[in-house]
Design a protein around this nucleic acid. Structure first.
Length: 478
RNA sequence: GGCGCUAUCGUCUAACGGUUAGGACGGAGCCCUCUCAAGGCUUAAAUACGGGUUCGAUUCCCGUUAGCGCUACCA
């Protein structure tokens, strides 16, 4: 039985790359009928915040994939310390009494790599015990077996065989001087304890993995399979950061921008993975069925956003595809909060009638505010009266069309068929082309040239509003 | 600096060593049409560079270049 985990640390918002890591873990677990575990890696007490914990849950809940088991590392600190103690007792770790402030200088910009602090590895057990007993603070470091000249290796499910000489691995910390476990210690102790079988995480962890293999060995843990994922990067090749690239790097920005959760999941799957058969738009079940680690790519993928377009065009396209196949009542329900957020006074009943008219004209749920606003406002925003003038026409033509429309619409049956018949006949009598007749009416009732088809629009708007707006338009005309 | 990873259209990607290097998004054009969309059709656009290996390299090897990651008592 496979056991997967996603282990974010609550030190920031839920990043788009983390979301993809979660999704790939989830997909892999579901594909194999395994267990998905959510573990909050909150060992860095100074940097943890409730806000970021909330952001993680907000994001994950929105994705709507769920998980099977939940843990928090802060509840398991004693286990981590016990594991560190086991390693220490085996002689595979040692106390380093070097003050924290000192190493910063030594390590940065050094000619070669920093491997360990001088004099600490070879401290005798008696001396080490004496200083510890005297209350001198220390860091517990892993004693990387460098003397044997061996190397550490593992077989990555994505990148293939990986190996690193122990001569290039520093004596990393297991326990901080305040007694708190480090990420390496806590993560490995929990992975072993929770019987994780596969660790799927970002490629930025490959060099950590050598250290982790060492810890698992020291712990006598069962073998764990590793799979590293290519990173998600910005169009300029740099890594995605909120400071540099804005809110688009966080999952909630997509939610707030009006993406459907599944769009986001589907889109993220396409970054760094492919089913190899040209399919792109896939249902959740299709993704579960198709997902394999073999399909994971090795090179970093660009999330293609820009200042003009905060969202990747492919994600936007996918969203419009999913929007278009949604049942109207579901779509209307999703649209409602976005309309209200834009302070449009929309009732569920109205939205139900408007939704079919805008379904093929919106790409994001939030577009409702710019595409359907005129259905919900009492008074139209001011518009340029020149818009009322049809192609190859003049103000007089617009006036004639609107005047005639008023008369016609006062009597016409307000159904698609009735409206079309009446207005086309009116156009014929005025010797106007259909477009020349319809444009002034469209602008009069919508306040702009580009809008949903006229008859359906009038039908939803109703006779009263339609006539009122046409009267207003006539007043605007010179 | 050290260690490691990566390199196919603008972007995401496909291609047992043999293809006119395929698909998608986005772009351009045409058609449809009451506007806008949607839809249909067409089109431009890529194997980073240099060496090998091979009858034959996008594919395998080496080098160069570029990008990225790691190099904490962060995760």
């Amino acid at each position: 039985m496979f056991r997967l985990r996603f282990a974010p640390s609550p030190t920031g918002y839920l990043h788009i790359g983390s979301a993809r890591t979660f999704i790939f873990n989830w997909l892999f677990a579901r594909h194999h009928g395994g267990t998905m575990i959510l573990r909050i890696d909150d060992t860095d007490v100074d940097r943890n915040t409730q806000t970021s914990l909330d952001s993680i849950f907000d994001g994950l809940n929105w994705l709507d994939l769920g998980w099977d088991e939940f843990y928090r590392q802060s509840d398991r600190l004693d286990r981590h310390r016990r594991a560190a103690q086991v390693i220490f007792e085996k002689g595979l770790a040692y106390r380093d009494f070097t003050p924290a402030a000192a190493d910063i200088e030594d390590k940065s910009h050094a000619a070669g790599p920093w491997l360990f602090n001088p004099g600490m590895r070879e401290l005798s057990a008696a001396e080490s015990d004496r200083r510890a007993a005297a209350g001198e603070p220390f860091v517990l470091r892993f004693r990387v077996p460098r003397e044997s000249g061996r190397s550490v290796s593992f077989d990555d499910a994505v990148y293939g065989p990986q190996s690193k000489s122990t001569a290039d691995i520093e004596d990393f910390a297991l326990l901080r001087s305040n007694g708190m476990p480090t990420y390496h210690m806590a993560s490995c102790a929990d992975d072993a304890d929770l019987a994780i079988t596969h660790i799927i995480r970002g490629q930025d962890h490959v060099s950590n993995t050598f250290k982790h293999v060492l810890i698992f060995e020291a712990l006598g843990a069962a073998a764990i399979r590793f799979a590293h994922l290519p990173l998600l990067i910005a169009p300029d090749g740099s890594k995605l950061s909120k400071r540099k690239h804005g809110p688009v790097v966080s999952v909630t920005a997509y939610r707030d921008g009006g993406f459907l959760p599944h769009t986001y999941v589907n889109f993220l799957c396409l970054l760094g993975w492919s089913p190899k058969d040209d399919r792109e738009k896939m249902t959740r079940q299709e993704l579960v069925d198709a997902f394999t680690l073999d399909g994971v790519n090795r090179s970093n993928a660009v999330v293609n956003f820009s200042d003009q377009d905060p969202f990747d065009p492919k994600a936007v396209w996918l969203n419009s595809e999913y929007l278009r196949e949604m049942p109207i009542d579901a779509l209307a329900a999703q649209l409602l909060p976005f309309a209200r957020a834009a302070s449009l006074d929309a009732s569920p009943e109205q939205m139900l009638r408007v939704a079919p008219l805008i379904r093929e004209r919106i790409k994001l749920l939030a577009d409702v505010s710019t595409v359907a606003d005129f259905f919900f406002v009492k008074e139209l925003a001011p518009y340029d009266p020149a818009e009322l003038i049809p192609q190859k026409g003049d103000a007089a033509m617009a006036r004639a069309a609107l005047l005639r429309a008023s008369e016609t619409l006062a009597a016409a049956e307000f159904t698609h068929h009735g409206l079309e018949e009446a207005l086309r006949a009116a156009a014929g009598e005025l010797h106007l082309k259909a477009g020349q007749m319809f444009q002034p009416i469209r602008v009069a009732v919508c306040g702009r040239k580009n809008a949903p088809p006229l008859f359906e629009t009038l039908e939803v708007l109703g006779r009263e509003t339609t006539l009122h707006r046409i009267r207003q338009a006539l007043d605007k005309l010179p």
